[in-house]
Nucleic acid binder design. Structure first.
Length: 329
DNA sequence: GATGCGTGGCT
DNA sequence: TAGCCAAGCAT
């Protein structure tokens, strides 16, 4: 959970997770839909799918016990150098260094590294230096201390240099370069996306589709629709039926504007325009899915219990607030 | 080695 | 408002 995620945010999810899945077998036996529902809102959903896979491996191959050796952990899905080192050192006190964003920042500043920290060359250097500094037999406390130091004192903005215990060794402090360390890769440009989506109602049920595992929000559920080239036209209503046809093969009529929500991910900014729709004909066409791998006609209550991207969740919340009659069936 | 993958909080 | 940031990993 803590991969690319702030501790404070992770804690809430972690506690809820442990209540539902106290031991590894609970994770392994759960349906992926439920796993994703407990992960909803944390992002990077491949982490949840990988955790699910890893739990199955642990049950099958390791007698339900999480391995504590670095090399063994590294083989598990979703566990890379950081997580393997964190578990091996903190749980098993194995002599391996943890190099996360905090540690990178500390080393980039103390040694005044003027190249982007993400490059493999710099990563190798930092790992080598950290490994050399690691007191044998004390990896647990060393790693935790280094991460906490980076998180609490040597923070990204407004680091507490005035009370820093290693200030006299800090090269970038001596040179007045703390604020420009670590050097970052140049950020990707933001992409603006306009998406239209349809809330297709039929006999009190809503059409929802589950996204392909390989795509963004893989395994999560959404309303069908499509992306529109931004031209600031206000013809979204006309686009909806067209996009739904392309996305699902269903012929619908967009009857009424529902809600517009803003949603962003990585370097994409999405404005999601939602319309209430109905099927053009009552004969039940079999959908031909484009962006999804599965669909279902669900009662609004059922739909509400599925894992959705945060933008779709906002739409769902809108429906509960403003169209409660849909849910009281 | 580069890219894609989420999200909400903070500045 | 727009950009930055976070206990990274897989491909």
């Amino acid at each position: 959970m803590l991969q690319q995620t702030q501790m404070e945010r992770g804690i809430v999810y972690f506690n809820r997770w442990l209540e539902r899945f106290p031991v590894v077998v609970d994770v392994a036996l759960a349906a992926e839909d439920e796993i994703l529902r407990y992960w909803e809102g944390l992002g990077y959903y491949a982490r949840a799918r990988n955790l699910h896979k890893a739990a199955k491996v642990i049950v099958e191959d390791y007698n339900c016990k999480v391995p504590s050796e670095y090399a063994t952990l590294l083989e598990l899905p979703g566990i890379g150098p950081y997580t393997a080192a964190a578990i091996a050192s903190i749980a098993g006190n194995e002599d391996v260094v943890v190099v996360d964003a905090n540690v990178n920042r500390v080393f980039a500043r103390v040694f005044n590294i003027d190249q982007p920290v993400k490059t493999t060359e710099v990563q190798k250097k930092i790992r080598a230096v950290a490994t050399a500094l690691l007191p044998p037999g004390k990896a647990r406390i060393f790693n935790q201390a280094l991460m906490d130091f980076g998180g609490l004192l040597c923070s990204p903005k407004a680091p507490l240099c005035h009370i820093c215990p290693v200030r006299e060794f800090c090269r970038s402090y001596a040179l007045g370069l703390v604020s420009v360390r670590p050097v970052l890769q140049k950020a990707q440009e933001n992409i603006q996306i306009k998406r239209v989506a349809g809330i297709i109602l039929q006999n009190g049920r809503i059409f929802m589709q589950q996204r392909k595992r390989s795509a963004v929000w893989g395994g999560l559920w959404e309303f069908p629709g499509g992306e529109i080239v931004v031209e600031d036209d206000e013809n979204s209503q006309l686009d909806v039926a067209l996009e739904i046809k392309k996305d699902t093969g269903l012929a619908v009529i967009a009857e009424q504007f529902a809600v517009e929500v803003k949603h962003q991910y990585t370097h994409h900014k999405i404005v999601l325009h939602c319309y209430f729709c109905r099927l053009q004909e009552h004969k039940a066409d079999t959908p031909q899915l484009r962006s999804a791998e599965k669909y279902s006609w669900l009662s609004p209550g059922e739909a509400d219990r599925l894992a959705c991207p945060s933008g779709v969740r906002k739409v769902m919340e809108y429906l509960k607030q403003h169209r409660p009659e849909l849910f009281s069936g």
